[in-house]
Simulated scan of single mutants.
Amino acid sequence: MKFIDEAKIRVEAGKGGNGCMSFRREKYVPRGGPDGGDGGKGGDVWLEATEQKATLLDFRYRRIFRARRGTHGQGKNKHGKGGSDLVLPVPVGTVVKDVETGEVLADLDAPGTRWCAARGGRGGRGNARFATSTRQAPRFSEEGEEGQSRDIQLELKLLADVGLVGFPNAGKSTLIAAVSAARPKIADYPFTTLIPTLGVVQVDDSRLFIIADIPGLIEGAHEGAGLGIRFLRHIERTKVLVHLIDISTVPEDRPLEPLEKIEHELYSYSPALLQKPRVVVLSKIDLLGDQSAVERITTNFQGVGHPVMAVSALTGKGLQPLLRLLAELLQEHSRCSQPFPPPADSLGATS
């Protein structure tokens, strides 16, 4: 299935039916009064979040969605039938924005959440509605009102507990494949991951969480460089961030440089991202071989204000302690009504 996380569509509610101009015509009633019925209301357009959808693919090739119009009123005080509503299912986590202003109109972040994108027009009144003691035979009726129409932008933000961030080839795809049933594409060249990947991690019998892997970040990602900017919104909903750094690429003279660059990109995109608890994971420790080198590099990261773990997704070393730590952070997060404050020495906040 092709992953589509953005779509621009136009929604048009139904027009109300016209009111009817009619007079009662019966035998022995030569001057029957007005009996024109009202027109039916036009149908609304609704967006509804559902777990049955995982992508906005349905909106890629069809851009205009119209609800049905109301039917016209008839004689003998017969009112027109209302137009049926149009309900558009969207994935849970879809954000709706106004195309012109960029204003967030709705955040459909729970299954079953509905939002009315366009209201149907009111049906016109028949001439029977305008009869008065001084105007007993009105010869006019109303037309139905036009339904609302608008252009909206749909953006999907994945719902995950843990978000993996890092440079290309940091080992994010290998890690998510090692700890979950997800099977992303894995190769030794940059930007292997072109779409976000979700995986369910089972820590023990009572604890599991969802982890998300997004395409690798590069310097300038917050300004549109590389692929990361397009997918950074997918980690906005996560509760914990994991900074994955290839330990074999850590410079000896400036070991914290990779972490500083990652946090700078996150902070530049949205300072709120650095209000989340973070874990620094030094990956691919199997490439060094020398355990003393691993310990030396790990020590350099001890003062960054976040837990630091060294792991190998290939051999499995360090993975279980990492998963238990993440489960504990998530459990702590669920007990807090407010997000974790950023550490005082946050690297990203000073970049």
Rank of each mutant, 00 (worst) to 15 (best):
L256R: 03
L256K: 00
L256P: 01
E257R: 14
E257V: 12
P258Q: 02
P258V: 02
P258S: 02
P258A: 03
E260L: 14
E260G: 00
E260V: 12
K261L: 09
K261F: 08
K261Y: 04
K261W: 01
I262H: 03
I262G: 00
I262T: 04
I262A: 00
E263M: 07
E263F: 10
H264P: 00
H264F: 08
E265I: 07
E265C: 03
E265P: 00
L266F: 01
L266K: 07
Y267E: 15
Y267F: 15
Y267A: 12
Y267R: 13
Y267S: 08
S268T: 06
S268F: 06
S268V: 08
Y269L: 15
Y269S: 14
S270Y: 04
S270A: 09
P271V: 08
P271R: 09
P271F: 06
A272W: 13
L273N: 04
L273W: 06
L273T: 06
L273G: 02
L273Y: 03
L274A: 08
L274N: 12
Q275S: 13
Q275R: 15
K276P: 09
K276M: 11
P277K: 03
R278A: 15
R278Q: 15
R278G: 14
R278P: 05
V279A: 07
V280Q: 06
V280N: 07
V280A: 11
V280T: 03
V280K: 07
V281Q: 07
V281N: 09
L282W: 09
L282V: 03
L282Y: 08
S283I: 08
S283N: 11
K284Y: 09
K284C: 07
K284W: 00
K284T: 10
I285N: 04
I285Q: 11
I285W: 01
I285C: 09
I285D: 03
D286C: 05
D286S: 07
D286M: 12
L287H: 10
L288C: 07
L288H: 08
G289L: 14
G289R: 09
G289F: 08
G289E: 08
D290L: 07
D290M: 02
D290Q: 02
Q291T: 12
S292A: 15
S292D: 15
S292C: 04
S292E: 15
A293S: 14
A293I: 03
A293Y: 01
A293N: 11
V294S: 09
V294L: 06
E295N: 12
E295W: 02
E295G: 02
E295M: 13
R296F: 12
R296A: 15
R296S: 14
R296P: 00
I297F: 11
I297D: 04
T298V: 10
T298G: 11
T298N: 03
T299G: 14
T299F: 12
T299V: 05
N300L: 10
N300G: 12
N300Q: 15
N300W: 13
Q302K: 14
Q302V: 09
Q302I: 10
G303Q: 10
G303N: 11
G303L: 03
V304I: 04
V304P: 05
V304Q: 01
G305H: 02
G305P: 01
G305M: 02
G305V: 01
H306W: 12
H306N: 05
H306K: 01
H306E: 10
P307L: 04
P307H: 10
P307Y: 12
V308T: 12
V308P: 02
V308E: 07
V308Q: 08
